[in-house]
C-alpha cells in the first residue's frame, strides 16, 4: 500500500486539509515578509467564512500599514479617517444593527490619534468588534515611536531607546479599556506560532459571536512583530517579541463576560 502513495495520489482535491480561504482575495499582500497583519487578516476571514456571514459583515480599514485591508478581504469594507474607525463603526452598527461590524486598527491608529474615539466607543458599549494589532511602532511611516513602544526600545525617532523621563510611558490601552463598564470581552493574543494563531482565531470567533448575541463591545488585541521597523529578520523579530513584548504585554484574556480576569 505504501508504495502506491505518490505525489499525484496525495495532491487530490478531496485530500486538502488546509487552503487559503476564498474570502482573501488573490492580490499579493502589501505587508513585509513575516508580518502578523497577513495572518490576522486571514484568520478574521476564516472566522467570517466558518460562520457563513460574508454578506452580513462590514469591515472598517484604518490608516497605517493595513490601510489597504479592503483590497485583501473579500467583504464589504469602508475606509475610515485616521483613528476614527470606532466612531464610524458606531454609526454603521446603529444604522444596520443586524450586520456584523468590525474595525481593524493598528497601534498608531487606535492608541494614539484615535484614543478618544476608542475609549468613548468602548465606554458606550457599542455592539461592535475591534481588532487591534499592536507592534509597538509606526510601521508604515518608517518606524517612528508609537505610544506602545517599550521603554528602551529603539525606533527612528528614539534612536537611543525610549527614555520614559522625556518621552513618557508606554500605553497599555487594552488594560485601560478593560476597566470600562461598556466592554464585554477583552483579550490579548499573538500570531507568531500555530498554537497562538489557533487561540487568536478562537478569540476572534468569540468576539463575532458576542456581536450576534448583542452582548456589547469585544476587543481583541493581537501583539505582532514589525521586522522592518525593528530592523530584524522575521524569525528574530518573533523571538524578540516573545522575550521583550510579552513580559510587558502578557497574553491571555483580560475581561470575559464583563468580569475582569483576576
Amino acid at each position: 500500500m505504501e508504495e502506491n502513495i505518490t505525489k499525484e495520489n496525495i495532491r487530490k482535491k478531496e485530500n486538502i486539509v488546509y487552503k487559503k480561504t476564498n474570502l482573501m482575495t488573490d492580490k499579493v499582500l502589501s505587508y513585509c515578509p513575516g508580518c502578523g497583519h497577513g495572518t490576522t487578516h486571514r484568520i478574521i476571514m476564516e472566522v467570517v467564512d466558518e460562520m457563513g456571514i460574508q454578506s452580513e459583515t462590514l469591515g472598517i480599514a484604518p490608516v497605517g500599514c493595513s490601510v489597504l485591508a479592503y483590497e485583501f478581504m473579500n467583504i464589504d469594507m469602508q475606509e475610515a479617517a485616521h483613528g476614527r474607525a470606532p466612531a464610524m463603526a458606531t454609526a454603521m452598527k446603529r444604522l444596520m444593527p443586524e450586520k456584523y461590524i468590525f474595525s481593524y486598527q493598528g497601534d498608531g491608529d487606535l492608541a494614539a490619534i484615535g484614543t478618544a474615539e476608542t475609549i468613548h466607543a468602548c465606554n458606550r458599549g457599542e455592539n461592535i468588534t475591534i481588532i487591534f494589532v499592536n507592534n509597538g511602532i509606526y510601521g508604515m511611516t518608517g518606524g517612528q515611536m508609537a505610544p506602545t513602544t517599550l521603554p528602551g526600545m529603539k525606533s527612528s525617532t528614539s534612536p537611543y531607546g525610549r527614555d520614559i523621563v522625556t518621552m513618557g510611558n508606554p500605553l497599555k490601552i487594552t488594560e485601560l479599556i478593560a476597566q470600562l463598564p461598556g466592554t464585554y470581552f477583552v483579550t490579548r493574543q499573538a500570531v507568531h506560532t500555530p498554537a497562538n494563531v489557533r487561540k487568536t482565531k478562537k478569540a476572534i470567533r468569540k468576539a463575532f459571536e458576542n456581536q450576534k448575541l448583542k452582548k456589547g463591545l469585544s476587543f481583541v488585541e493581537v501583539v505582532s512583530n514589525c521586522s522592518s521597523g525593528w530592523k530584524m529578520t522575521p524569525v528574530q523579530a518573533n523571538k524578540w517579541m516573545v522575550e521583550n513584548m510579552f513580559p510587558f504585554y502578557p497574553l491571555g484574556d483580560i475581561k470575559v463576560d464583563r468580569e475582569l480576569v483576576k
Binding site: 500500500m1 505504501e2 502513495i5 495520489n9 496525495i10 495532491r11 487530490k12 485530500n15 486538502i16 486539509v17 488546509y18 487552503k19 487559503k20 480561504t21 482573501m24 499579493v28 499582500l29 505587508y31 515578509p33 513575516g34 508580518c35 502578523g36 497583519h37 497577513g38 495572518t39 486571514r42 500570531v191 507568531h192 506560532t193 500555530p194 494563531v197 489557533r198
Partner: peptide
C-alpha cells in the same frame, strides 16, 4: 505529516496542505 502548522502561520497564505491515511 500534513499537520498544517506551516500553512496556519504563513502570513501570506501561500501553502495548501494535503493529507492521506495509509
Amino acid at each position: 505529516t500534513g499537520c498544517t502548522n506551516c500553512a496556519i502561520v504563513c502570513p501570506d497564505g501561500v501553502i495548501t496542505v494535503y493529507r492521506v491515511k495509509i
